[in-house]
């Protein structure tokens, strides 16, 4: 089982891989409609929206949280160097 390089989600089922393609290292939630992986800015904005919508946190706190999460993920390592 792989873990998505862009958000850290374990990918257990084929349907959880981007485009249902198990050779991909990122998940369905981190893919654009055309199947390519989202950019850093796109992913960050998506994570902030998601945190605000599902947990109701303050937007600034949500941004901090999203960044701290992304910092640990292989897909975004170079964005923090």
């Amino acid at each position: 089982m792989k873990v998505c390089i862009a958000c850290g989600m374990p990918m257990k089922e084929v349907a959880e891989y981007a485009g249902g393609d198990t050779s991909k290292d990122y998940c369905i939630y981190c893919a654009r409609p055309d199947g390519s992986m989202q950019s850093f800015e796109e992913k960050k904005a998506g994570m902030i929206d998601f945190i605000v919508r599902t947990q109701g946190f303050d937007e600034k706190a949500a941004a901090q949280l999203a960044e701290s999460n992304m910092k640990k993920l292989p897909a975004w390592k170079e964005c923090f160097e």
Partner: peptide, 9 residues
């Protein structure tokens, strides 16, 4: 604290 918050997310 951030790691814990990520877990809640």
């Amino acid at each position: 604290r951030m790691t814990l918050a990520n877990l809640q997310s």
